[in-house]
Simulated assay, not measured.
Amino acid sequence: MTTGPLIVGINGSERAGGNTDLALGHTGSLIRALGGELRTIQLRDHRIVPCGPCGDCNSRLAPCVQQDDVAEIVEEMKRADGIVYAVPVHGFGLAHLMQIFIERAGVGHLRFDRPLANKVGGIIVTGRRYSDSSVHNQVVDNLLLNRMILVGSGFPVLLRNTLGTPGLHDAEGLDALDRMIHRMLGMIRLLRKYEDITGEPVLPLDDRNERVIRSRV
């Protein structure tokens, strides 16, 4: 029996009950209405150690030996059909929890065989007014680095709130979120249909371990 699309939401906010939490709660409602499932990972509830001074990330051929929860989170992401990264703007940039996570996950676990390749990705940025586009662009670069598939929704999902209390008041941002989720689930189902018909992924890769390839040159 075919199950509905599974989306993992990565919440990079330190604040429980804040704008980012509300945005992911709304996202879950949209996904469930379309026959999918959202599993949210709250980075604030996990132990994530910053990159250390070892300095061998560009030469090692095996995952990072740091003992924390990053490997477990990556395994959850690998089981998903799609991933939504949700993050607030802090200090005109990416909130530090998400920054630490994408660094550790990327150089410590994902760069060896790009296990997120061909998964459908989405991005939600919450903020007051400034630098949300810059933060969105940074996460886009990370998703492209991991060879994920980004579907256009017309506009980036930037949810702005200038009030002193959390809330989803940005009508244009919510409309963009709705369209992004519809297109994400549609793309996931299209990719599944292609693989069911052909027995092969729509975008096969033959260069998953970049470190091995470079060592052979």
Results as ranks from 00 to 15, higher is better:
Asp56Asn: 12
Ser215Lys: 13
Asn146Tyr: 11
Phe112Leu: 13
His96Val: 13
Gly152Phe: 10
Glu103Trp: 06
Gly127Cys: 12
Arg179Leu: 13
His169Thr: 14
Met187Lys: 08
Ala105Asn: 09
Val212Ile: 14
Lys119Met: 07
Leu116Glu: 03
Leu174Asp: 06
Asp178Trp: 04
Leu116Tyr: 06
Leu145Met: 12
Gly122Lys: 07
Val70Trp: 08
Tyr85Lys: 02
Gly167Leu: 10
Arg147Ile: 05
Leu22Lys: 10
Ser153Arg: 04
Gly154Phe: 10
Glu37Gly: 00
Arg114Asn: 14
Gln138Lys: 05
Leu61Ser: 15
Gly91Thr: 14
Asp132Phe: 08
Leu143Lys: 06
Asp207Trp: 12
Asp206His: 14
Leu203Arg: 11
Glu75Ser: 14
Asp56Pro: 00
Pro5Ile: 04
Tyr194Glu: 10
Ala80Met: 07
Gly35Trp: 04
Tyr130Arg: 12
Met1Ser: 12
Ile31Gly: 00
Val87Trp: 00
Met187Glu: 09
Gly91Asn: 15
Met148His: 03
Val120His: 09
Ala80Cys: 09
Gly55Trp: 11
His90Trp: 11
Leu190Cys: 04
Asp69Lys: 11
Gly52Tyr: 08
Ile213Arg: 14
Tyr130Phe: 11
Ala16Arg: 14
Ile48Trp: 10
Glu75Thr: 15
Ile100His: 06
Ser131Val: 11
Met184Lys: 06
Leu163Phe: 13
Ile83Arg: 03
Gly106Asn: 11
Ala105Arg: 06
Gly25Tyr: 07
His109Gln: 05
His136Asp: 14
Cys54Ser: 08
Val212Thr: 14
Ile83Asn: 02
Pro50Phe: 08
Glu195Gly: 02
Arg104Gly: 02
Ile83Trp: 05
Gly106Glu: 09
Asp196Val: 09
Thr165Asn: 04
Gly108Cys: 03
Gly91Ala: 13
Arg179Tyr: 11
His169Arg: 15
Val65His: 04
Leu203Asp: 09
Leu94Gly: 00
Ile123Glu: 02
His26Gly: 01
